[in-house]
Design a binder for these strands. Structure first.
Lengths: 217, 217
DNA sequence: TCTATTTTTTAGTCTACCCTAAAAATATTT
DNA sequence: AAATATTTTTAGGGTAGACTAAAAAATAGA
């Protein structure tokens, strides 16, 4: 395993590669590499049994590939917790450094770090940390876009793109905070959230796809 | 900068490459790569102005190369402190993981980590942590091999090879502990140390080169 | 259905590493 | 000083990962 292969596996996973087929095009975009490089990497990972490949359609993770993806995400998220809680990183700053650290972390290191952090369940943007054995404890959450007016919920998890986290910081949307959806404008218009303290926040239509909420308030 | 180049620069430094010329042979041994690979890496680093090269003699670090070496050692040693103090690694376990982590650590990360650790001065085997600007605060220490019978001292710094640290652990030689040198056998024979509690330890001649002591007790 | 566009693959290069084997230069021994 | 041994360099190859440009396949539109 090399850092590049690991990033590739992780990208496939994040594009839904366990259930669906992921196109080369999506990987080109996600990894910012050429289409030729994607084809090439596909053949390498295919040879190692980490993916299945349907020519001209795309790739899917095998169970072996999925296990590796989950291990990587575990490492990534444990590092994110460390950076945010111990080193005082903002939640939009953790991603880049965690992405580098995850590739050089032995299992020994990660387990020690996990204990040091008190065996956390979530990372700083609400992502569930996969278990040591590669399994995931599922959390009951709904994309905000699927909510209707008057729904009450708390913010469970948000997309971890640096730019998006900055946007949420600017909009003062916080993890764990309770809101009521008071308005959804038609024609993909903005959504208005009202916090328990009465503060209102208006967020864009597309942002509502990147926010997962817990309706069991 | 790549991890390989960084390791190469660090190896030159550790072989005394700031003052003396370091031979290819020494680098072959230190890095466990072929002589041809050393020559090749030399030409790469020469082109980047990190070393000077005298054909058939060896290489030396430029000021630029030295600065990079010190930054790396700073990163390495700060990680060692973290692994030992926060994650409970034994002093012989820290080296391998620190060697990986040092190559993926941004300056931002290292400075945060440094503050989190309380701005330590020494790493777990007594090595001085270089300053942020690449300078080093020199410590007054003497190789144990240069001591004579009846000298009193405390252990200041020891070589950080995993195997050697295991040996010291077995011999119960501890950093900061005070000893008197009570015997040195001739013909490169063993040395006998006596701790303040009367406990005696006999160590091999070659080990005395790898231990630095502070005679100002 | 046929054309046009998009996507994927193939072909050919490039760089950073690494290697072995042989040649050249330096050091050592006799 | 010559022969031998050691060290360094050169020559030629290999792999992983990236690229561009062109060919092939699939999809979309008229």
């Amino acid at each position: 395993m090399t850092p590049n292969k690991e990033d590739f596996i992780k990208a496939i996973y994040e594009l839904g590669g366990h259930e669906q087929v992921v196109s080369n095009k999506a990987l080109v975009k996600a990894l910012s590499i050429s289409a030729a490089s994607v084809t090439e990497m596909n053949t390498r990972l295919l040879k190692e049994g980490l993916i299945t490949h349907l020519p001209y359609q795309g790739v899917q993770l095998t169970d072996k590939g999925l296990r590796i993806a989950n291990q990587l995400i575990r490492k990534h998220r444990i590092w994110e917790v460390f950076l945010a809680e111990k080193l005082g990183y903002d939640w939009n700053e953790v991603h880049k450094d965690a992405d580098l650290l995850e590739h050089v972390s032995s299992d020994f290191l990660i387990e020690r770090l996990n204990v040091f952090l008190g065996e956390p369940t979530f990372d700083p943007h609400g992502g569930v940390i996969p278990n040591k054995d590669g399994t995931i404890t599922e959390i009951d959450s709904t994309p905000l876009i699927e909510c209707t007016v008057d729904d009450q919920f708390k913010i469970q998890e948000v997309d971890d793109q640096e730019e998006f986290l900055e946007y949420l910081l600017y909009k003062n949307v916080q993890l764990g905070k309770k809101y009521t959806l008071v308005d959804v404008e038609p024609y993909d218009g903005p959504l208005t959230l009202e916090a328990v303290d009465g503060e209102r926040t208006i967020i864009g239509h597309k942002a509502a796809f990147k926010i997962l909420v817990d309706k069991n308030v």
